[in-house]
Simulated assay, not measured.
Amino acid sequence: MALLLASRAARRLRPQCWASAATVFFAPGHRKPSPIKPILSPKTLGTLFSAPIGSPGYHLLALRQTLSLASITSFSSSGNPNKEEDEDEKPWNRRSAVSNSSWIDLYLPDSLRPYALLARLDKPIGTWLLAWPCFWSITMAAQPGEYPDLKMLALFGCGAVLLRGAGCTVNDLLDRDIDVKVERTKHRPFASGLLTPYQGVGFLGVQLLLGLGILLQLNNYSQILGASSLLLVFSYPLMKRLTFWPQAYLGLTFNWGALLGWAAIKGNLDPAIVLPLYSSGVFWTLVYDTIYAHQDKEDDLKVGVKSTALRFGVLTKNWISGFGIACIGSLFVSGFNAELAWPYYLFLTSAAGQLGWQILTVDLFDHSDCNRKFVSNKWFGALVFSGILLGRLAS
Rank of each mutant, 00 (worst) to 15 (best):
L3S: 05
S7E: 09
W18L: 14
S20N: 13
A22T: 05
F26A: 13
G29I: 00
P33I: 06
P38G: 02
I39P: 01
P52Q: 13
A62T: 01
T66C: 11
S68F: 09
E85S: 13
E89W: 11
E89R: 15
K90G: 14
R95V: 15
S96A: 14
S99L: 07
N100I: 15
Y115I: 00
K123Y: 13
T127N: 09
W128S: 00
W136I: 03
E146S: 12
L155V: 07
F156G: 14
C158F: 10
A160H: 03
L162C: 09
L163K: 05
V170A: 15
N171V: 01
T185L: 02
F190R: 00
A191M: 11
Q207L: 07
L212I: 13
L212E: 08
G213C: 10
I214V: 05
L218Y: 02
F234V: 07
S235N: 14
K240H: 02
K240T: 03
L242K: 15
L242Q: 15
L252K: 03
L260M: 06
G267P: 00
P271H: 07
P271Q: 07
S279R: 08
S280L: 06
T285Q: 12
D289S: 13
Y292N: 08
A293W: 05
H294Q: 00
H294E: 00
V305G: 03
K306Q: 12
S307H: 00
T308H: 02
T308M: 08
F312C: 05
G313Q: 09
K317P: 03
S321D: 14
G324F: 02
I325L: 11
F332N: 09
S350N: 08
Q354I: 12
G356T: 08
W357Q: 11
F365C: 12
D366Y: 08
K373C: 09
F374V: 10
F380A: 04
F385R: 04
G387M: 03
I388E: 00
G391A: 14
